[in-house]
């Protein structure tokens, strides 16, 4: 464990807590893409298959449980909670996210580190996570007024993967044989997808104006 990875995990945890806070306290999911949340639940479900088979550390197991429970509860809230579901804008959240699932799975079948079920599912979860934010970014461009919590949620989600990139660089230089090209490239693609969001987020913060993404 290194400081970049710990900071990355804490930032990721913060993004999930910000989202749960928003949904649980103001009982609203306005501006949140259910499709991105469903993709994230699938990412964790396929990545943490080894939850009960491989014990790495208490921290690792605890965080996996937190991410699994939180991502599925967020999906449940938006879909089934009688008040929250009313604020879900399904006419705007129209990204065909199922078109992301199959290509990621096929790519995982072809490009992976080991041709085993667990490893292919793990690689699938990596590719899927890289594109999972797309429905949310499309929704942000459609909904004019982005509320602070939603902006912070997306920012933290992008920031966590950027910190992971620093973690991979650190591990590459400190641990012999630590080479995971698949993880690095998909993590880089994921972070690049946030690039323009980061730019507008920083501009809105610097000029102290409301966050707006160009249509």
């Amino acid at each position: 464990m290194n400081i970049f990875r710990l900071a990355g995990d804490m930032t990721h945890l913060a993004s999930v807590l910000v989202l749960l806070l928003k949904i649980h306290t103001i009982k609203s999911c306005a501006g949140i893409s259910l499709k991105t949340q469903e993709l994230y639940a699938l990412v964790f479900a396929t990545r943490y298959l080894d939850l009960f088979t491989d014990y790495i550390s208490l921290y690792n197991t605890l965080m996996k449980l937190i991410f699994l429970v939180s991502s599925f509860s967020i999906v449940w809230y938006i879909r089934h909670h009688k008040i929250v579901r009313r604020s879900y804008d399904k006419d705007q959240d129209t990204f065909r996210h199922y078109f992301l699932v199959l290509p990621c799975f096929l790519l995982a079948l072809v490009i992976n580190e080991k041709f085993t079920v667990k490893e292919i599912m793990w690689t699938f979860s990596l590719y899927l996570e890289a594109v999972a934010i797309l429905p949310q970014l499309v929704l942000l461009q459609r909904t004019r007024n982005i509320d602070n919590l939603t902006g912070q949620y997306v920012f933290l989600l992008g920031a966590y993967r950027s910190l992971y990139i620093l973690n991979w660089i650190y591990r590459y230089f400190t641990e012999p044989h630590y080479v995971h090209w698949i993880t690095w490239i998909s993590g880089l693609v994921q972070t690049l997808l946030y690039a323009d969001f980061f730019y507008y987020y920083f501009q809105s913060w610097k000029n102290n104006v409301k966050l707006e993404l160009p249509a």
Binding site: D9, N60, K64, T183
Partner: peptide, 10 residues
């Protein structure tokens, strides 16, 4: 190494 899980990151 065998047995050791391939991935220790979240």
């Amino acid at each position: 190494p065998l047995g050791q899980p391939m991935h220790d990151e979240l």
